[in-house]
Amino acid sequence: MPVTVTRTTITTTTSSSSGLGSHTIVGSPRALTQPLGLLRLLQLLSTCVAFSLVASVNAWTGPMGDWSMFTWCFCFAVTLIILIVEVGGLQPRFPLSWRNFPITYACYAALFCLSTSIIYPTTYVQFQPHGRVRDHAIAATVFSCIAFVAYATEVAWTRARPGEITGYMATVPGLLKVLETFVACVIFAFLSDPGLYQHHRALEWCVAVYAICFILAAVAILLNLGDCTNALPISFPSFLSGLALLSVLLYATALVLWPLYQFDERYGGQPQRRKDRSCGSSHNYYICGWDRRLAIAILTAVNLLAYVADLVYSARLVFVRV
């Protein structure tokens, strides 16, 4: 019996810069006075002030401090590039798809700033004595929160609406891909200590799952940013559905194995935090082994939920009727 496959095709149209959800096509300084341009100026200002306050008093230490400084500097630099491209009307010469790049970056920047707004005060600010350094660190945290709100607002304004023709990265599945890769990056950061997983093959399998799923999601994002979806041997919606299904199955195994071998004494795990010697000291700039294991378990569950939602949305792109 023949099978007819009908799929929805996600494309994009070019519009003027008069609305919040559109991008500037003709370069003009007036682009900065549009609502989206003003929002990006706020992003630029808040990230610049954040890293300037911290750098002026050397208010960062350890890997968490490095993460915070990288976040503010990276977001400032890329936002500046986006403003230059739009003011100069250089979108046709930009090496990546302008249909997908700005919202993809805005989503990443929102997640980066959110994580920094939580990590920086909890691992640095609260341990500082009252004084100039602490005041600068608190002010930097406030501006980091402002940057997060600004980036999140851009994502909310420029994401695809029901029935709207747009780029894939502006849709819910596209934004979920960003979330999945970001959570995986945070998991990799917590896995920086090989001693967390090298003592058992089941835990090494979990690390392999995180890496495989991250690569697959990153490939999907890069295909859209490079406008290369037509190069696949199968339809892009079918590719997305298969990718999401595989990732759900892999993450389901990690969600079972990681907590089992990390917190169950029968499998060599440590169920109680107080028994972990690395968690005995209360010094800052450091996250102990037990807390890392717990954070990875929670992030694994978060990413599994994201992949399940991704599978549901991606499956709707492909309808098979017999």
Rank of each mutant, 00 (worst) to 15 (best):
M1Y: 13
V3W: 12
V3K: 13
T8D: 13
T8K: 15
T9Q: 12
T9A: 13
T13A: 12
T13E: 14
G21C: 08
H23E: 14
H23W: 15
T24H: 10
T24M: 10
I25Q: 15
G27N: 05
P29F: 06
P35M: 09
P35Q: 05
L36S: 13
G37Q: 06
L38V: 10
L39Q: 11
L41Q: 06
L44D: 00
F51R: 01
F51M: 06
S52W: 07
V54D: 05
A59T: 02
A59F: 08
G62T: 01
M64I: 14
C75S: 03
F76C: 12
F76A: 11
F76V: 05
A77E: 11
T79N: 04
I84G: 12
G89S: 08
L90R: 06
W98T: 05
W98H: 07
F101L: 02
T104M: 09
Y105A: 03
A106E: 08
A110C: 03
L111Q: 08
F112Y: 07
C113R: 01
C113T: 07
L114K: 09
S115G: 11
T116V: 04
I118D: 07
T123V: 10
Y124E: 06
V125N: 04
V125S: 00
F127H: 06
R132T: 14
H136P: 08
A137P: 00
I138R: 07
I146D: 07
I146Q: 05
V149E: 09
A150I: 03
T153P: 04
W157M: 15
E164S: 07
G167W: 04
G167F: 01
L175K: 03
F182I: 02
F190R: 09
P194S: 00
L196D: 07
H200W: 10
A202S: 12
V207P: 04
Y210N: 10
A211G: 11
F214N: 02
V219Q: 01
V219P: 06
A220C: 10
D227V: 09
S235T: 13
F236N: 06
S238Q: 11
L240I: 11
L245N: 10
S247Y: 00
Y251M: 07
Y251H: 10
A252G: 10
L255R: 12
L255W: 12
V256F: 12
Y261F: 12
Q262L: 05
P271K: 00
Y285D: 14
I287S: 01
C288S: 11
D291N: 12
A297Q: 07
A297C: 04
A297R: 06
L299H: 01
V302W: 05
A306N: 02
V308G: 01
A309H: 10
L311Y: 02
V312D: 07
L317K: 07
V318M: 02
V318W: 04
V318E: 03
F319W: 13
R321C: 13
